[in-house]
């Protein structure tokens, strides 16, 4: 079979081999280096540092809260983008896409000018919350929502777009209100996409750095997350930085394994 295909000139083009090998090596070497250069002997000492555990706890808590907020606001938003046929919906979709293409650090600047003390909505926010958002714990959660929610919205929107409208029609003839159809039929139908989108969103929120650094600051014990801690450690004690990458790499691997089937399926059907 392989022989026959090679004979007909449909085998691997030799010209493609070297760039492909160089490409994968380029991606592999730095990741490998993290493992090789981790100071395994001092791992215990590094992780006994209270600041590390605090940063890890803040990272996990804030990223989970950001994911929860993204689900609450993002799933209905995804439905609107997928189903509404009104002028301006294209614009709304573009707005959702902005954080995907904007450098996160610019996202931080944007958040400052939108929700900061002197931002567009600074005064009403201060009145409502009794505090300012920048350099607060809530600030880093919102910075993560800003950067990560679009991943969820885009994933779920695609699923709403292709989900079976016929079952919703059947539910309507059975007397189910629109809200009931949305909650009991439509959302469960796209649940796999919601889970996948939430995982992507959470992974992105956990690794968020640029917007978090600018909008949240890098205040030990309140707004320092694992990624911003890595910056501080890298500036003072670069040899210890690879050790702090371990939890983040572990998450990356788990997400990859968890979503592998889905990605393979998507690739196969598209």
């Amino acid at each position: 079979m392989t022989r026959a295909r090679r004979g007909t000139g449909l085998g691997t083009p030799l010209v493609a081999v070297p760039p492909a090998v160089v490409g994968v090596a380029f991606l592999l070497v730095p990741t490998l280096a993290l493992l090789v250069r981790t100071p395994w002997d001092r791992l215990g000492a590094i992780y006994r540092d209270e600041h590390v555990w605090t940063a890890l706890r803040i990272s996990i808590e804030s990223s989970l809260e950001a994911t929860a907020l993204s689900l609450v606001f993002g799933v209905p938003l995804a439905w609107m983008l997928a189903r509404l046929r009104v002028p301006g919906i294209g614009l709304a979709r573009a707005i959702v896409t902005i954080p995907l293409v904007l450098p996160p650090v610019i996202g931080g600047v944007a958040l400052f000018n939108g929700f900061g003390r002197n931002g567009l909505l600074g005064r009403p926010i201060h009145t409502a919350l009794g505090q300012d958002l920048p350099f607060s714990y809530l600030g880093i959660v919102l910075a993560q929502v800003f950067v990560a929610m679009p991943f969820l919205v885009i994933t779920v929107e695609g699923a709403f777009r292709i989900s079976d409208r016929g079952i919703e029609e059947a539910a309507a003839t059975l007397g189910a209100s629109r809200s009931r159809i949305f909650l009991r039929v439509t959302v469960p139908l796209v649940m796999p996409a919601i889970v996948a989108g939430a995982v992507l969103c959470w992974a992105r929120a956990l690794g968020e750095f640029g917007a978090t650094l600018l909008f949240g600051g890098n205040v030990r014990g309140s707004t320092q997350t694992l990624p911003t801690l890595v910056l501080s450690v890298f500036q003072t004690n670069p040899a210890d930085a690879p050790a702090l990458a371990l939890p983040l790499m572990l998450v990356a691997v788990l997400v990859l394994v968890g979503l592998r089937d889905r990605w393979l399926r998507t690739a196969a059907t598209s």
């Binding site: 016929g166 029609e169 003839t173």
Partner: peptide
Amino acid sequence: LGVVFQDHRLVPHLRVVDNVAFGLRA
């Protein structure tokens, strides 16, 4: 009106009994 569709359109994540109970619950 009771509607039976050509492709049945049962709700896939609900058990048969809950599909039948769906309209009454609604």
